[in-house]
Design a protein around this nucleic acid. Structure first.
Length: 423
RNA sequence: AGAGGGGUGUCCGAGUGGUUUAAGGAGCACGCUUGGAAAGCGUGUGUAGGUCUCAAGCUUACCGAGGGUUCGAAUCCCUUCCCCUCUACCA
């Protein structure tokens, strides 16, 4: 969430940033916010002045009672009793004004970094770099949804039976490949200095709000009926919320955490042509890296995270490209996002396998995640990225590495899989 | 799940309606003292909002969370979350 002091001192910048993110009537909304804040302040002031008066009177009554001047105390009491109702009304008005302000503020996305390209759709994203050569497959090459059936390693029909569409069952070498990738990704992150966390995969409402999934993406999460807990859409939520309402010691920064979790997404309304097979699932595994940084270091950290993800893709020998997302395509809470896409040979298209973002203070403001520098408390910057999400990596490995001997497993994974080919 | 006990500042801990303006202790910071240190002594030590050009100051809220009673609530009442003990159950 944007902060009001920032908006007040950087009004033009805020309007320009919101416009780049395609918020309609940005100028109007910002004007409205400032007016609402003025109203909140004046109502708060009225309420506080009344409270001050009442506090002073209560103290006087206390003193009179103690010195035995009962009559005087009674008189004073009658007098202040009348104040009570007014105070309640004023406090309520101040509270309502504050809620109105927050409710509007919460609907605004983060402001984009100056390097974010203009644009509205995926085609407007900027290709930052390409790595590797796109393999040429034989005529008989198959997409992964055929390969998984041929080798009987991932079973959608069984998943349909026990749960529903989008919940595949991994079997045999398929299951082993999942476990291999999870361990490989975790080990790589730990080597890069990340600290491993195994968080709960159900979270409460406060956590959903802290990282910005609520109220924006309410419909994308599964909720338990009895407790109202949400199944996490990404490990970003529990791992970042570890630091909700925390003032981190400056010496502990940066914080670099990594965690593996299953991720759950309802993906309501997004089923169509491009979501066959492993391309889009309701449940999938992902290794997530999260950093908490001092503001001045956060963009260096973003580059470092991008390089970390790229190094993994290189070790897996998967051709990829890096995109800098345009204002219209980037996430609600992000200031700058890089997407990594691997080439899926048999589908002939790029598949997003990672997204690394700097949220600057947007999440930290909701989380009340601060640090103290020179005695002043300031909001930290939060960052996260997938390193990596499994299903599309599996799809790319299957499709790109298919040959007469079956599917060839990348060298680095063999110690983890214990086999060299799926055949 | 049942019964009982509890949640107070960085930590320990006192506090059952009115100098609580949260005692006392520890820790931490600074100062005095010292050859240096320890001890001792002194001072300070939370968060958020408002006011203010800035600072100081003043002011409001915060004793797990939310609501209520009262002129006045850490203290009384209600709801809720969490922790501990015993019992039951269970991987």
């Amino acid at each position: 969430m944007l902060t009001i002091p920032f908006i007040r001192t950087n009004t033009e910048l805020t309007i320009a940033g919101l416009t780049k993110k395609h918020v309609a009537n940005a100028a109007e909304i910002v004007g409205q916010l400032i007016a609402m804040d003025d109203k909140r302040k004046s109502l708060l002031q009225q309420a506080e002045q009344a409270l001050e008066k009442s506090n002073a009177a209560a103290k006087e009554i206390g003193a009179l009672m103690q010195s035995g001047q009962k009559d005087l105390a009674e008189g004073k009491r009658a007098e202040t009793a009348a104040l009570k109702g007014d105070i309640k009304v004023m406090e309520e008005a101040a509270r309502v004004a504050e809620k109105e302000l927050t409710d509007l503020l919460v609907t605004l996305p983060n402001l984009p970094h100056s390097s974010v390209p203009e644009g509205k759709v995926a085609e407007d994203n900027e290709v930052v770099l390409n790595w590797g050569t796109i393999p040429t497959l034989t005529e008989s090459a198959k997409p992964h949804w055929d390969l998984i059936k041929d080798y009987d390693i991932i079973d959608f029909d069984l998943g349909n039976k026990i749960t529903g569409a989008g919940f595949p069952v991994y079997k045999g070498k398929g299951a082993r490949l999942q476990r291999a990738l999870i361990n490989f990704f975790l080990d790589e992150a730990i080597k890069a200095g990340y600290y491993e966390i195994q968080p709960p995969i159900l979270i409460n409402e406060d956590s959903g709000f802290g990282t910005g999934q609520l109220p924006d993406k309410e419909g994308q999460m599964y909720v338990t009926q009895a407790e109202g807990l949400y199944l996490i859409p990404t490990a970003e939520v529990p791992i970042t919320n570890l630091y909700r309402d925390v003032i981190v010691n400056e010496k502990e920064l940066p914080i670099k955490n990594v965690g593996h979790t299953p991720c759950f997404r309802r993906e309501a309304g997004s089923w169509g042509a491009h979501v066959r097979g492993l391309n889009r699932l309701h449940q999938f595994d992902k290794i997530e890296i999260v950093q908490i940084q001092k503001p001045e270091n956060s963009y260096a950290a973003l580059e470092e995270m991008s390089l970390h993800v790229q190094s993994i893709l290189q070790k897996l020998e998967l051709p990829y490209r890096v995109l800098r997302l345009c204002g219209g395509d980037m996430g609600f809470t992000s200031a700058l996002t890089y997407d990594m896409e691997v080439w899926s040979a048999a589908q002939g298209r790029w598949l997003e396998v990672s997204s690394v973002s700097n949220f600057e203070t947007y999440q930290a403001n909701r989380l009340k995640l601060r640090t103290k520098i020179d005695g002043k408390s300031i909001l930290c910057h939060t960052l996260n990225g997938s390193a990596l999400a499994l299903p599309r990596i599996v799809a790319a490995i299957l499709e790109n590495n298919q040959g007469p001997d079956g599917i060839k497993i990348p060298e680095v994974l063999v110690p983890y899989t214990g086999y060299t080919h799926i055949n």
